[in-house]
Amino acid sequence: MNAIVENLDLFFRGFGYTVALFVISGLLSLLLGTLLAAMRVGPIAVLRLASSVYVTCVRNTPLVIVFAFFAFLAPVLGIHFKWLDVQVGDLNFTSFYGAAVVSLSLYTSAFVCEAMRSGVNAVPLGQAEAARAIGLPFGGVMREVVLPQAFRAALPPLASVQIALIKNTSVAAVFGVAEATQSMRDLLRDFGATERIGIFAMFALGYVVLVELVSLLSLRLERRWAVAR
């Protein structure tokens, strides 16, 4: 336990990065995933195809490789995050952080798209038919009628996707972000065998707390938004 007590600042800084990664890429992935889902059920065949190819490829690629694309291939294309250098308190957001956020958002958005699509499929047929009958175009049908209901139906799978995202932020450790998993690795390296269980238990507990928070939030929202059908 000494190892953690002595390094509390490292512990909290690590989880600070983890939470920052989760919140920003969580929001971005929700936006992008919804857009992808709309493209995928929309009337434009080209967009349907593009979205489905994107989702299939990204879903079947390991996250590490998505990260590697942004670390090594994106700079060749002129996409780099060198402009990013923000200091918030103890946390320093640099180009590594930018690449990690983009990788996590793009990867997670594919799963968000699938969750939203299953939500759209759960909306009763009559809803969209009624929306069309009063003359709404595709955008109106989606925005005013289908998506608000789809979002409710998609809440449980969306929560699963976001929980997976919390755990996936750990991959950023491989690509130079000093988040919680990286902090644990540093501590494990510095301390002996007797301290290892304690260090692991504390970091694991940190992740468990984050996961349970999102889980509780989703259960509460689910209950509040439940509709009688």
Binding site: I163, I166, K167, N168, T169, S170, V171, A173, V174, A180, T181, M184, R185, L188, R189, R196, F200, F203, A204, Y207, V208, V211, E212
Partner: peptide, 19 residues
């Protein structure tokens, strides 16, 4: 079950590796 479902695979991997 809840514990192992909530802990990132990578964290578990690194700990096992050191252990």
């Amino acid at each position: 079950v809840e514990f192992f479902r909530a802990v990132p695979v990578l964290l578990m991997m690194i700990f096992t590796w050191f252990a």
